[in-house]
Structure formats: structure tokens, C-alpha cells
Write a protein that binds this DNA or RNA. Structure first.
Lengths: 131, 131
DNA sequence: TCACTTGTATATTGTACATGTACAATAGGC
DNA sequence: GCCTATTGTACATGTACAATATACAAGTGA
């Protein structure tokens, strides 16, 4: 088991590493994998685990702190906050539907069966309705 | 109605324009908005419509051609192909589930209600099951 | 106090996006 | 058949950003 709670990045991906870290950690935070008040790995420790520079991790932490997920302090590290929900935003304005369709289109293009995609989406939808 | 079948890009987005074009057109292609044999706008025409350079559109067309969606020929333009499905790929190997979770996590962080996300996913899942 | 840990700031380097420009191949009128 | 316009392509350039190396500032803890 890795020290970070199952976080994987792909150095070969064209997607920026710092963005992969942000996206991956945010998913874990939303899933409730980290309790408020809990310590996250230091920027240097996580950097070693992932094989990147600590400034790259620091940039990711700054983004998450900006979103209200973390509190950063020198000498202390990164602490998970009890995040307050922001003002409700409509799906339409966020563009979630469009992004979802594009994600599905990519999967279909790559050969993933539509039935499998439908199952995954239905499962996650159910999980969201009853948390 | 615009000549491209409802394709919008955001020049201010950090996401590369050529990638937005690829993703948007691919979604339209998967949705069956373009019939096989049909002509797509020329790289120069679409470039004018979107307000970008024609080489940017050309790069997008090349990606879609690589995926088997289009056939490109000088002097003729871009023609939609009757695309053969590639070898089936498992969802797990594709990483669709992880990307989906990250997309949802971003929406939740931005304040979109979980119920709204669940509805959109359930609706699209249903549409995929009965095409 | 003082050594150590942690996040931060700045400069540098490589890479990728978008463009400007010129070229090659095809279509269509004559 | 030839000629011109049209279409996609190739290549070089400007610019912005990602990732790093290095040095620094602020807090911790004995």
C-alpha cells in the first residue's frame, strides 16, 4: 500500500502532472478518504513518492487550498479542512453535461462497450443519491 | 444555424483549442450528427467560424482521422467515414471510472448539487442502453 | 537558543500550442 | 489537356506554461 491513499499519476501523459495530482486528490477528498484535521503528506514526501519535484506538488496543494480543501502552513504541513459547500451552481452553467458527453465519446472511440459505460455511470449516480 | 453543427470553443480556456475541437467534434460524431460520406467544413472555413488559425483545425482533423473518424485528402476536404468499432476494451483498462470520478469531484467542488449530477448521469446511461 | 522541517519565491530550461508563410495535391471550368 | 482556385500539409517562429534547481522564510520542537 502506498503512503498516499491510492494516488497514481502518469508522467508520460500530456496532461500536466500538477493537474493530475489536483484532480486525483480532489476525488479522494470528495470521497471522504481524508478526515478534516488530518495531515496530508508533506510536499517533499509526496514528491518523492510520485517521482516529481516538490514545487510541482506545492503548486497542486495551492490549487486545493484555493478551493478550500486544505490549509497550508510553513513548518506544519498541509491540513485537511472541514470544507463549506460553495453557493449552489446549476449543472448547465458548469457545463458538466457537455464534459460528460465528451468523456463518454472518447471511451466509445477507444472501444469501451456502451453497456459498460452505462453501468459505471448508473452506479456512481446511485452512490451520489445515497451517500 | 451555424455551419458546424453546434460546436463551441472557449479561447480563454487553458485547455488547448485543438483539443477542444477534437473533443467537441468527436461527441457530435458519436451522437450520429454526421452521416458517413458527409463533408465536414474545410479546415479554413471552420477556422474562420471559430476564430482560429486553419492549422489549428487541421491538427484536430488529423487526430480524428487517426482515430478513424475522418478521411482527409487535399483538394477534396474532410469526409466522415463509416467507422468500424475497434477491439473491445475493458472500462478498467481505459480508466473511464477514474476520469468520471474526477469530473464529478470537480463539479461538486464548484457547487453543483449531487442530485443534479446523478440525474445527468442516469439520463445519459439510459440513452446509451437504448440507442 | 538552535537545528530541523516545511512551505514559498525566483530564475532557468524544455516543451507544446497557435500562428505565419510557403508548398503540394486535387477538383473543376474552359 | 491546361490553368486556376481550392484544399490539406510542412516547417519555422513567437509565446506561454510546466517542471525543475536553488535559495530563502517561517514555523516546530527539543
Amino acid at each position: 500500500m502506498g503512503s498516499p491513499r491510492t494516488l497514481r499519476i502518469d508522467l508520460a501523459s500530456p496532461r500536466p502532472v500538477y493537474e493530475q495530482i489536483v484532480s486525483g486528490l480532489r476525488a479522494l477528498l470528495v470521497a471522504g478518504e481524508f478526515a478534516p484535521g488530518e495531515q496530508l503528506p508533506t510536499v517533499r514526501q509526496l514528491a518523492i513518492d510520485l517521482g516529481v519535484h516538490h514545487n510541482t506538488v506545492a503548486e497542486s496543494y495551492r490549487v486545493l487550498a484555493e478551493e478550500g480543501w486544505l490549509e497550508l502552513r510553513r513548518g506544519r504541513g498541509a491540513v485537511v479542512l472541514d470544507r463549506r459547500e460553495p453557493k449552489p451552481l446549476t449543472v448547465a452553467k458548469h457545463g458538466f453535461g457537455r464534459h460528460l458527453e465528451e468523456l463518454v465519446a472518447k471511451a466509445i472511440t477507444d472501444g469501451v462497450p456502451r453497456s459498460a459505460l452505462a453501468e459505471q455511470m448508473a452506479a456512481l449516480a446511485e452512490k451520489l443519491r445515497k451517500p
